[in-house]
Design a protein around this nucleic acid. Structure first.
Length: 562
RNA sequence: UGGGCCGUCGCCAAGCGGUAAGGCACUGGGUUUUGAUCCCAGCAUGCGCAGGUUCGAAUCCUGCCGGCCCAGCCA
C-alpha cells in the first residue's frame, strides 16, 4: 500500500536547485547541512519546516545533517530544552550526523577573536550599551565611531584577556568587529562579537564569563563543521554580509554558503517561542505539549503522525516569499495519513441511551466490524450488541428537517453493522430534557440489510451500554481566534475560549486499547483519536486528533442562514 | 524618506524567452452500511501596474505601485 505522499511528484525548490547545481559543477561532492536551534524553548511547527528542509535535502543528496545547539546565551538556555529538541527531531524521523553545541567551540571561537584583534579587525569597546546604541546612528543616518575604536592591538589583547579572566562586570566592555560605522547595513556598524555575562551555562558551567554573539558564532561553527549550505530564514538576509566578512577575514576550513528562505506562517497559529512560553508559564495551556499547542510535542500528544508533518513540509514549498498557509492544508495532510493507517472503532462522545423494546432482555450477540472499510487486511473485531445502547445525542432530533438522515420519532435508521431501528417514543425528564428513547428493531435487518431491500438514509454509530468502556474524551478547536495572533499586542486577546471541550461521559466499544500511546483510531463519524499520555485502563482519556470532514455541518449552517 | 528582500487563481506553488503544472479550498456529478474515504468533471485569454526589446515575454530592460525585514552586549 502506497501512502498518499509517495505518489506525489518529487520535491523541488530553489535551494535544491542550488545544491544540485553545486554538485553538478563539482563545487561539492558531499553536502552537509545543519539544523541549529537555540535551546531556549520547545520546537514548533515552524521549526518542523526547517528540520524537514535541512535533513530532507541532506538525505536526498546523500549528504549529512548536523543537529547543532546554538547555545551562546546562557541566560535563556536549559537542558530541558535540549532533551526535548533531540526527542522531537528523532520523532520526526531524522538522524543527525553529529550533535554538537556551539559551546563545544568556545575555545576555538576565542582564538578566532584573538586573531581578529591581531589583524586590527576587532577592538574592545568600553562604551555602555546605552552609549553604543546612541552612537549606532539610525536607518538613514550613519553611526559615530567609538572613542575606543583605535586602541592599540596590545591594549585590545590585554582587555580581552582580562574580560575572559572575569575582571570586569557585565556590560563594562565588549569586543567589537571593526568594520564600518557608516555602512547602510546596520549589522556592519562594528557589531559586538563578545559580551561579558557572569552566568552559569547549562553545559560549560562557570568556565566562561564572556560569550560570543550569534553572528560571530554561527558562521564559524558552520565552517568548523564543514557545512556546505547554511539554510536560515529571511530575517538573516541582512546578516549574510557579516557572515561572509568573518569567514573572509579569518583562516577557516571552508566558507559555507548561507541561503535564506521564508519562515513558515500558519493562519490561526503562533510560532513565537516567547509567546508560547508565556502560555505555558501562565498556565493557560497544560504545558509545552498541550495538544492545542503548535509545538512538535503538542502535536505528537494530540496524535499527529511524523509522516503527516513531513508531507506538509514538502507540499508547502520553500521560497523567499512571505506567505501564510491555511490550516486546511495541514489538516488535509493529517487526515490523508490517518485515513490509511487508523483502525475504525465506534465510540459515543455525548451519550443518549436507547432501549430496544422488542429485543430480549438478557440477550447479547456479537457483530463483526470491519477495522477499515477499504482494507480487508486490517481485519475485523467483535462488537457486542444488547438491549440497551448509547447513541450520539446529535444523532437524534425531535423535530427533524427532511434532510436530517438520522434518528427522529417514527424514523428508521441503521445501527452500523447491526440492525435497523425505529424510534417509537421519547422519554423526558421533568425539566423537558430527553432522558432516553424507546426504539424497536427489525430482526430481519440483521447485519444492516433487509430481505425486502428497503433503504434507510442514515447509518449511525452506537455502543452497547453494558459493555462500554467509560472514557473522558477531549475535543480541540483552534487555540487562537484571530488569523494572525503574532500581530496582537496581548496574547490573551487572541485566545479561543472554546479551544478545549471535554466529554466526561464518553462510551467506547470494548475492543479499544486505552493506554497504548501511538495507536491512532478513527471513531467512526467522529474523527481520529488517540489515547492521551495520561490515559490508563483505570482512567481512559482520549484526544481527538482531528475531526472528519463534515459536509453535513456545512449544510446545517446554510439552513441556519435561511 | 538608508539598506536588504518579495509580488503567478481565495491560500500555497511550478515555470528559467516558445505561448500558464500541481496541491489545498470551492462547485457539480458518481460509488458508499462512516453525510467519511474513493472516483470523475469544473475552477488564471492571465502572471502587481505601465511602458519598452523580440517573430514571440510570467520569463529580458526601464519606471512606478504594494508588502516584509533591519537601529539587542537576543538568535
Amino acid at each position: 500500500m502506497n501512502t498518499p505522499s509517495e505518489d506525489r511528484a518529487p520535491v523541488t525548490n530553489f535551494i535544491r536547485d542550488i545544491i544540485a547545481h553545486d554538485i553538478k559543477s563539482g563545487k561539492h561532492s558531499h553536502i552537509i547541512t545543519r539544523f541549529p536551534p537555540e535551546p531556549n524553548g520547545y520546537l514548533h511547527i515552524g521549526h518542523a519546516k526547517s528540520i524537514c528542509l535541512n535533513f530532507g535535502v541532506a538525505q536526498d543528496f546523500n549528504g549529512d545533517c548536523n543537529l547543532r545547539f546554538d547555545d551562546t546565551n546562557p541566560e535563556k538556555e536549559e537542558q530541558e530544552y535540549i532533551d526535548s529538541i533531540r526527542e522531537d527531531v528523532a520523532w520526526l524521523g531524522f538522524k543527525w550526523k553529529s550533535n554538537p553545541s556551539a559551546s563545544d567551540y568556545f575555545d576555538q571561537l576565542y582564538e578566532y577573536a584573538v586573531s581578529l584583534i591581531n589583524k586590527g579587525l576587532a577592538y574592545v569597546d568600553s562604551l555602555s550599551p546605552d552609549e553604543m546604541r546612541a552612537q549606532r546612528g539610525t536607518l538613514t543616518e550613519p553611526g559615530t565611531e567609538s572613542p575606543y575604536r583605535n586602541r592599540s592591538i596590545e591594549d585590545n589583547l590585554d582587555f580581552f584577556k582580562r574580560m575572559k579572566a572575569g575582571e570586569f562586570a557585565d556590560g563594562e566592555h565588549a569586543l567589537r568587529a571593526k568594520i564600518d560605522m557608516a555602512s547602510p547595513n546596520i549589522n556592519l556598524r562594528d557589531p559586538v562579537i563578545y559580551r561579558i555575562r557572569h552566568a552559569t551555562h547549562h553545559s560549560t558551567g562557570d568556565l566562561w564569563c564572556i560569550y560570543p554573539m550569534y553572528d560571530f558564532t554561527h558562521c564559524l561553527s558552520d565552517a568548523i563543521e564543514g557545512i556546505t549550505h547554511s539554510l536560515c530564514t529571511l530575517e538573516f538576509e541582512d546578516h549574510r554580509p557579516l557572515y561572509d566578512w568573518f569567514l573572509d577575514q579569518l583562516d577557516t576550513p571552508c566558507h559555507p554558503r548561507q541561503i535564506e528562505f521564508a519562515r513558515l506562517q500558519l493562519k490561526y497559529t503562533l510560532t513565537s517561542k516567547r509567546k508560547l512560553n508565556q502560555l505555558v508559564q501562565e498556565g493557560i495551556v497544560d504545558g509545552w505539549d498541550d495538544p492545542r499547542m503548535p509545538t512538535i510535542s503538542g502535536m505528537r500528544r494530540r496524535g499527529f503522525t511524523p509522516e503527516s508533518i513531513r508531507n506538509f513540509s514538502d507540499i508547502i514549498g520553500v521560497t523567499k516569499k512571505d506567505s501564510m498557509i491555511e490550516m486546511g492544508v495541514l489538516e488535509n495532510c493529517l487526515r490523508e495519513d490517518l485515513n490509511v493507517r487508523a483502525q475504525r472503532r465506534m465510540a459515543v462522545l455525548n451519550p443518549l441511551k436507547i432501549i430496544i423494546e422488542n429485543y430480549p432482555e438478557d440477550q447479547v450477540e456479537y457483530f463483526d466490524g470491519k477495522n477499515h472499510p477499504q482494507y480487508p487486511d486490517f481485519g475485523t473485531r467483535k462488537i457486542p450488541f444488547s438491549r440497551e445502547l448509547y447513541i450520539e445525542q446529535e444523532d437524534f432530533m425531535e423535530d427533524a428537517p427532511r434532510k436530517f438522515f438520522r434518528l427522529a420519532p417514527g424514523r428508521e435508521v441503521r445501527l452500523r453493522f447491526a440492525y435497523y431501528i425505529t424510534c417509537q417514543q421519547v422519554i423526558k425528564n421533568e425539566d423537558g430534557s430527553i432522558r432516553e428513547l424507546i426504539c424497536s428493531y427489525d430482526p430481519e435487518s440483521r447485519g444492516g440489510n433487509t430481505p425486502d431491500g428497503r433503504k434507510v438514509k442514515g447509518t449511525i454509530h452506537w455502543v452497547s451500554a453494558a459493555h462500554a468502556i467509560d472514557a473522558e474524551v477531549r475535543s480541540y478547536d483552534r487555540l487562537f481566534n484571530v488569523v494572525n495572533p503574532a500581530r496582537a499586542e496581548d496574547v490573551h486577546d487572541t485566545l479561543n475560549p472554546k479551544s478545549l471541550q471535554i466529554h466526561p461521559n464518553g462510551k467506547l466499544e470494548p475492543e479499544i486499547e486505552t493506554s497504548r500511546q501511538p495507536l491512532a483510531y478513527q471513531f467512526e463519524r467522529l474523527g481520529y483519536f488517540i489515547a492521551d499520555k495520561h490515559s490508563s485502563a483505570e482512567k481512559p482519556v482520549f484526544n481527538r486528533t482531528m475531526s472528519l470532514r463534515d459536509s453535513w455541518a456545512k449544510i446545517e449552517k446554510e439552513q441556519d442562514k435561511n
